[in-house]
Computed example of a mutant assay.
Amino acid sequence: MATVGMRQMARTARTRRRGTATAALVAGAVTAFLMAGCTTDDRPSDDGRGRTHSRSQEPDHRDSPAPGSAGPVLAVKIDNVRAARPQTGLDAADLVYAEQVEGGLSRLMAVYATRLPQAVGPVRSARESDLELLRQFDEPTLAFSGAQGKLLPLIDRAPLNAESPESAASGAYYRGTDKAAPHNLYLRPQRLIGAAPGADALTTGFRYGVAPEGGTPEKSRTVRFPSARFTFTWSADRNGWLVSMDGTPTVTTDGVRVAAATVVVQYVKVRESRFHDVLGNNSPYTQSVGSGRAQVLRDGRAFDAEWRRGSATEGTDFTTADGTPVNFAKGQVWVVFAQA
């Protein structure tokens, strides 16, 4: 009970800080938008204290020590336009979700449980559908750079620990010098959650083990959004699917080529939400509760599957047509939400 009380007190404090910060953000949103050349509803933020950081202040990108045994996962919203690449810390994520945003572009949500990189980014803004997606985890920590003004109250009420540059501990966020704002905001994960919570925090419903029987040999798969595309190419040498985005190989700032052990192409309903960006474009809502078809790529093969998520507090089950669970390969999982 004491722990619950402390969490509630912490959330209340964050809400009060965000309320103060939001007033300042509203006043400067248009100016910041024009200076940054931003085309979505993101609100470019510094580290919350009006400071930027030179390259000499950036941490190296080696992984943190062994994971802990308790605590929430860390979910980070990551920028994915060309100006934001290469990203940092993406290869260390246990799970990467790819979702559609305004203008048919894409954005990533990277989920960390078994290890924490020294830095992650560039960090960008949250969307309404993130709240539904994150309900499957126990009070996850969401790192994001801001959100549409009317969405902030929903984030405050959601059962998660929301950590923007305005609410996070000092030094958790910093501005790099390698990219122009708003594509240069980075996070030091250990400043938010201390240590990786461990695999038990990944309450996604995913099952890992031997591949199901059958499947079709697959060398490459491309998933298209209106203004973005993801390509996954099987590499026997890496025993995984090499990731490319918009026709360019996905490589981190450390020079690591990102490869997923399992790729899930999950066909979902993508509808209009009640929110818009600063240009008036509607923010798509990706509906992750429900059921539909999917394809699971692993071990150089593609497996037809059905997905089902009964409620927001549940993980997602993937089964074959006869109800047999589809096991994933051990390692990083990418889930690409494609329009049904």
Rank of each mutant, 00 (worst) to 15 (best):
V251F: 05
F144P: 06
F318S: 02
Y208S: 03
A21R: 05
V223I: 15
S145N: 10
P44R: 12
T320R: 10
E128V: 08
R7C: 03
S170L: 02
R271S: 15
A338V: 03
G300Y: 08
R49P: 09
T204M: 02
G171I: 05
R293N: 15
R82S: 12
F328W: 04
D322W: 03
R43M: 06
A302I: 05
H61D: 12
L185Q: 12
H183P: 09
A338M: 04
M6Q: 14
A169L: 01
S56M: 06
L105E: 14
E128R: 09
C38Q: 12
G194W: 07
T324P: 00
R308P: 02
V30N: 01
T286C: 02
G310M: 01
P182K: 05
V256F: 04
P67E: 06
A93L: 04
S283P: 00
D304C: 00
K77N: 11
R238L: 12
L108A: 01
Q100W: 04
P165H: 10
L279R: 13
V270F: 07
A83E: 14
R257T: 15
A36R: 10
L95P: 03
G171K: 08
V243L: 11
A70E: 15
H183W: 11
Y186M: 05
S227R: 13
T20P: 00
F328H: 08
F137L: 05
S244T: 10
V251K: 09
T3E: 15
S220P: 11
R51M: 12
T177V: 10
G149W: 06
A199W: 06
D246K: 02
A75N: 06
A199P: 06
G255S: 07
D47F: 06
L279D: 15
A113R: 07
T204L: 02
P59Y: 13
L34G: 07
G315H: 04
R274H: 15
R18L: 11
D46A: 01
P189S: 09
M6S: 11
A113F: 07
F33W: 14
Q57N: 08
A21N: 03
A199M: 01
T222Q: 11
S56L: 13
T40S: 14
V265E: 15
N327E: 11
R55G: 12
R135F: 04
E139L: 08
E128T: 00
K219P: 03
A70Y: 09
R238Y: 11
A2M: 05
K269Y: 06
R55V: 14
L154G: 00
V270M: 12
A162S: 11
G28Y: 03
D47C: 07
N282Y: 11
A110H: 06
A13T: 10
Y267P: 00
S283Y: 13
G247D: 09
G323D: 07
S145C: 07
R17S: 09
L74P: 07
R18N: 14
A119S: 15
G194L: 06
F230A: 06
P67H: 03
G315F: 04
S227L: 01
A172W: 10
D130Y: 10
T15D: 10
S244E: 15
P325K: 00
S64H: 14
R18E: 15
V264S: 02
R308E: 13
P197R: 02
D200E: 14
E166G: 03
Q266S: 09
A338C: 03
V4H: 09
A75S: 08
L279M: 08
G5P: 01
A24M: 07
E306Q: 13
A119N: 07
S106K: 02
A147D: 11
T204R: 02
R238E: 15
